[in-house]
Amino acid sequence: LVRYRTISKIPQITLNFVDLKGDPFLASPTSDREIIAPKIKERTHNVTEKVTQVLSLGADVLPEYKLQAPRIHRWTILHYSPFKAVWDWLILLLVIYTAVFTPYSAAFLLKETEEGPPATECGYACQPLAVVDLIVDIMFIVDILINFRTTYVNANEEVVSHPGRIAVHYFKGWFLIDMVAAIPFDLLIFGSGSEELIGLLKTARLLRLVRVARKLDRYSEYGAAVLFLLMCTFALIAHWLACIWYAIGNMEQPHMDSRIGWLHNLGDQIGKPYNSSGLGGPSIKDKYVTALYFTFSSLTSVGFGNVSPNTNSEKIFSICVMLIGSLMYASIFGNVSAIIQRLYSGTARYHTQMLRVREFIRFHQIPNPLRQRLEEYFQHAWSYTNGIDMNAVLKGFPECLQADICLHLNRSLLQHCKPFRGATKGCLRALAMKFKTTHAPPGDTLVHAGDLLTALYFISRGSIEILRGDVVVAILGKNDIFGEPLNLYARPGKSNGDVRALTYCDLHKIHR
């Protein structure tokens, strides 16, 4: 019993810090008490220290592992850092350059016999395009090294910054494609005289377009951006097909006994025919423009016929181009109408809503002055909100995010209106959640004399007048207030005048 009563005193000691020596009952000389009392004092002292730490809000209350900052290894790049964003855009520009100039170089340097010394005699450094290609190869190699040090988000939505895990993730992902696209074939085969082989191998750079397509997928929600990307894709495919079309004609031209190829026909049409040795002929500019003209006309199913396939190889390629053109029509131009419709969806919704308003007016036989006010209010409210119901949009977000959005939407009023000066951010967040926005066209009466005042109004834009009878008592403008002081009276009061809008007004109100 003594032991039980001794232990039962522990909660009292913990909360009230009572010393055991003052209790005459606990001072009985028993061996059990002498053993338990020192333990009680020690526990009391420890609990006292913990309570003191909690009340003082000291940093040592938290466990040590929670006080440590997340460790980022040296030379690790955050995937959302500004440097990584700028670097990704730079790589994107280099990939676009590669997609345009690599097929052009591979096709127009394929057994090209233009006048001038061969590239091997001039030297590697004197070729501007080769120098640019070398810079692109170096940048792609540097990009691989950067990807080995860039964080990523795993399946659990955690940012991984450990170098080993980053390397394994990159090896399992895009490393092989990036490595093949970054191989400097110019340096590996330079001086061997195989410019045709170098041009063909350099087309491996186009593998990076797969990554670019995935990154550009984030802009699919913007109709104008999608339309622009589709047109660029169409032009890029036409450019690639033009390079292939020229390569076919250029390879067949020296081996044909009869002059029936499209390059021969082009030379005869523009007065620059090929001679018996295969030299001469149109310039590279004429060849490229004509090839691009043929691919565009074939892809769009126009086909004027002034550039036509004559050999079997050219006919087979033309059939493939027609098939590609039909697929592009289905996948690209078939979506253009939907994209344009999405661009004008706001206008369509406006006309639909206006039609419903006019049908309501016609069905209920609203008189002319009231009908005009109804239409003007709808037009003004639509121009202010673009038909978007803010309350319906915010309803799907958590309250903390709703408060931040409301604070942002009402920031101008909260910053410049005098009653809100000096208020804490928590108070402003709470008030912003209570605001209701209303609009009024010129001549609209917001409050009639004798109406119950259940709200306090803040003028965000425009001006109003307060009338008693036919006498203008006051004219209020931006950041002015009218209405009933909230919670100042037990019952809502009545208006002693009319409140009429002089201009288009936007008002925020808080109800009782």
Rank of each mutant, 00 (worst) to 15 (best):
V86G: 05
V210P: 10
I72P: 11
G346D: 10
S326W: 07
N154D: 12
E114S: 07
M322Q: 04
E359T: 03
G443D: 01
F363T: 13
W240R: 01
P282A: 01
T76Y: 07
P128T: 14
S276G: 06
G271Y: 02
I166Q: 01
S81M: 01
L176Y: 05
Y377Q: 10
M139N: 01
A204Y: 11
G123M: 01
A423Y: 01
S313Q: 04
F360G: 03
F363V: 10
E158V: 11
I388S: 03
W262Q: 03
Q379E: 07
N335R: 08
T311L: 01
P419M: 04
Q253F: 15
H416S: 10
I339M: 04
I237A: 04
R259I: 03
N368F: 05
V357T: 04
R373G: 02
K425D: 13
G191V: 03
V160A: 03
R421M: 10
G164Y: 11
E115N: 03
P103N: 01
C400Q: 01
G164F: 14
S337T: 11
K287C: 05
S412P: 11
L90K: 01
S194R: 11
G116R: 15
D268Q: 13
I189K: 14
V302W: 01
F397R: 02
L323E: 01
G223I: 03
S308N: 05
R71Y: 14
L94A: 13
V86Q: 01
F360V: 01
W87K: 01
F171H: 01
R349H: 05
N368W: 06
Q68I: 06
L94Y: 01
H162L: 11
L187F: 11
M251A: 13
L188K: 09
R362I: 03
N154G: 13
F83W: 10
I96C: 07
H439G: 05
W382P: 03
W87F: 03
H169F: 05
P103V: 01
R205A: 04
T120L: 04
C406F: 05
M390N: 06
Y329A: 15
F296Y: 04
A423Q: 05
V357C: 04
T352E: 12
V289D: 01
H239K: 01
Y222S: 05
I388A: 04
Y222P: 12
V307D: 01
D444A: 09
T300E: 01
T290S: 01
A430T: 12
I183H: 01
F228P: 03
H448I: 04
W245D: 01
H439N: 08
T102R: 01
I91Q: 01
A107M: 03
L370F: 02
K436N: 10
I96G: 04
K418E: 12
A432K: 01
G426R: 03
